[in-house]
């Protein structure tokens, strides 16, 4: 569905993503892990067409993803969310949801003026869909509230719900659970699984290993812009390179400080000092 072929992105002298190739299949849930600064968000920006690769190519559904038309992947069914959604203060929650849908009659100035009936029918249908999605993230009661007035966690949930208004084939999520409380986090995992059952593939940048282990079929670990592991989530903690990327190289005589706790779905929860900024 979505693939990267030998993609590199440099910012001046810094190579943020270094010769990465990957392939995301239909209905797959892939976690993108790695310490801060390892290039996860840059890779997500490249995959979604928000950044142009310095070299290499990104293909989605048979077409090349081009940063010159960053809006196009979204219309073709490749959508992304943001780490910090920064939702508008002067638009309501429901309006943000509708902006995530495809309403061709209302989006055309001519048809807005000349075919009010079609605009109204279209809007009513999408309001119904939006309210359903809002109910799933506990925001239905806030439909008429300013989107920018929501808490950080709620804004993330709304950002996710708005992206789902167009039934994407591939969804790229940038730290969906940061700032979301644990009970909602579990429900979010259930929700994401249901989205996958609906036919959507997911790529998730995430620091919460429990969440990753619970949800992902496969993990790509990045370090210094390169893929250092491509394995099942439960294999991550056994991977020497991954452990070193997170914790640094082990010095002889100093014991490794891995806290083995919160074994969700049989995975080891790697907690590192300061790795979750």
């Amino acid at each position: 569905m979505l693939s990267a072929h030998d993609v590199t992105r440099s910012f001046g002298g810094l190579t943020a993503v270094n010769h990465v190739s990957l392939e995301i299949g239909p209905r797959e849930i892939v976690g993108l892990v790695g310490p801060n600064g390892s290039g996860k968000t840059t890779l997500l920006n490249l995959l979604s067409g928000f950044l142009a690769p310095t070299s290499g190519e990104i293909r989605f559904d048979g077409t090349t993803v081009s940063a010159r038309r960053a809006w196009q992947p979204s219309r073709l069914g490749l959508r992304r969310s943001f780490q910090l959604p920064k939702l508008p203060a002067r638009m309501s929650v429901l309006e943000v949801m509708l902006a995530g849908g495809r309403l061709p009659a209302g989006a055309s100035p001519w048809r807005s003026l000349l075919t009010p009936g079609a605009v109204r029918r279209e809007e009513a249908a999408f309001i119904g869909k939006a309210m359903g999605l809002l109910a799933e993230v506990d925001l239905a009661g806030l439909a008429d509230h300013p989107a920018g007035g929501l808490s950080g966690g709620q804004q993330k949930l709304l950002g996710l719900a708005a992206v789902l208004m167009d039934d994407p084939a591939v969804l790229l999520l940038d730290e969906p659970t940061a700032g979301v409380n644990p009970s909602l986090r579990r429900r979010m995992a259930d929700h994401l699984r249901r989205i996958r059952e609906g036919g959507t593939a997911l790529v998730i940048v995430e620091h919460d290993m429990g969440f990753i282990g619970d949800l992902c079929d496969r993990c790509l670990a990045l370090d210094k812009g390169a893929v250092i592991a491509n394995c099942r989530p439960d294999e991550l903690s056994g991977n020497q390179q991954v452990v070193e990327a997170y914790l640094g190289r082990r010095r002889p005589g100093v014991p490794l400080r891995i806290v083995a706790g919160g074994t969700v779905g049989g995975t080891v929860d790697i907690r590192t000092n300061g790795a979750r900024a």
């Binding site: 928000f50 809006w71 902006a99 209302g106 807005s112 208004m165």
Partner: peptide, 27 residues
């Protein structure tokens, strides 16, 4: 009227967060 329909909604989203508007498929 233009401010009330999806056209205006996208304009307002563009005003406040152009990246989000782009991510939601608006040129």
């Amino acid at each position: 009227r233009l401010g009330q329909t999806q056209f205006g909604r996208v304009l307002r989203l563009m005003r406040e967060n152009p990246d989000l508007a782009t991510a939601l498929g608006h040129d």
